[in-house]
């Protein structure tokens, strides 16, 4: 990373946003307003999911309109493992369920990663508008499958009754659970930064800007993009598992096209391809939903209007506004 002004300014903005989230949760806890701790937890989880998407969308230019699939698969991995452990029934192949978070996260990583390999290998054969429609279609396929498969609640979803546990932490209290989510968000952002500044990240961004040149240099854009797509899906999958632990509930709505759209909105509202973009977007979205949702039932109407104005007139998102437009192409 160079030492030029815009880059360092972005680092300051990123750090400030991350610390503001932590400070907000701590202050809320200190003043006894645990509801706001839960709100901060929601921000952290959505930011992690969107950071995953930012890997594919921001760095790779892959407009995936199907990331709800991975969010929901992570969610169902959590829900299914937890409900089997709760009922004491083994799953298929006689495997036991579990209520230990790290094991659940691993399962969410593997499940969403495997599905992403299949969806990515097929959709990345195309590009542009085809890619958007195909990722949307495959996510819809998984959505309908979840609705029509009765074993885990079908359309009604699945309640997990008790939040899963983490060794040495009381996850039932809001603040410790927030800190777990915050730590994972920090790890996710660190990983995003690592990928962005790595040789792989350079190749991925080059493949966005000019795939023909990348191919001429002897690198296959398809493989680079597939790896990025799978990594991106895995991060979103873990966020899905956390989201289910937050709500103690998983349903097909986590897999819906609206969820995919919301994830894109978070990334673009915050700043596509920027480190803290998804965090800024998630914070804005959750606060917006909370404040406007308190005033009017029709808050999504105004969300639509604002979103439309942002797309038409204010490009670059929140981070672009705060840290200047440092990104190329």
């Amino acid at each position: 990373m160079g030492a030029s002004m815009p880059v360092s300014r972005e680092a300051v903005v990123s750090l400030t946003l991350i610390l503001a989230l932590l400070a907000g949760a701590l202050i809320a806890q200190a003043s006894g307003e645990t509801f706001y701790v839960t709100l901060a937890t929601r921000i952290a989880i959505l930011a992690l999911a969107a950071t995953g998407l930012n890997l594919a969308l921001g760095l790779g230019g892959l407009v995936s309109f199907g990331h709800a699939a991975f969010f929901g698969i992570g969610g169902y991995a959590c829900g299914i493992l937890a409900i089997h452990a709760y009922n004491g029934e083994p799953m298929i192949l006689g495997l036991p369920g579990t209520q230990t978070m790290p094991v659940i996260w691993l399962a969410a990583l593997v499940a969403s990663g495997l599905v992403a390999v299949a969806i990515g290998a097929l959709s990345l054969r195309t590009s542009g508008v085809y890619f958007i429609m195909i990722t949307l279609a495959f996510a819809q396929m998984i959505y309908y499958f979840a609705i029509s498969w009765p074993a885990y609640g079908g359309e009604d979803g699945l309640s997990i009754f008790v939040r899963d546990n983490f060794p040495g932490v009381n996850t039932l209290k809001p603040l410790p659970f927030f800190l777990i989510c915050f730590a994972l968000l920090a790890a996710g952002l660190f990983f995003f930064g690592l990928v962005r500044d790595s040789r792989f990240g350079a190749a991925l961004q080059a493949a966005r800007q000019n795939p023909v040149r990348v191919a001429a240099l002897g690198m296959a854009p398809f493989r680079i993009r597939l790896v990025a797509f799978v990594l991106s899906a895995m991060m979103t999958g873990v966020a899905g598992a956390l989201y289910v632990d937050l709500n103690r509930f998983v349903s097909p709505s986590m897999l819906s096209w609206q969820m995919s759209g919301e994830l894109i909105v978070l990334v673009v509202l915050g700043g596509t391809g920027r480190l803290a973009g998804p965090l800024a977007g998630a914070a804005l979205y959750v606060l917006f939903e909370f404040l406007l949702g308190g005033m009017t039932e029709r808050w999504q109407f105004f969300l639509g209007l604002i979103l439309l104005l942002v797309v038409l007139f204010a490009r670059g998102g929140v981070v672009g506004l705060l840290a200047g437009r440092a990104r190329h192409g």
Binding site: I264, T272, Q300, L303, L308
Partner: peptide, 18 residues
């Protein structure tokens, strides 16, 4: 395409709530 997706997604929200 990303801008088109977002703007028309916003239109869905406006039409549905409207």
């Amino acid at each position: 395409h990303l801008d088109q997706v977002l703007a028309t997604f916003a239109l869905i929200l406006i039409f549905s709530e409207g």
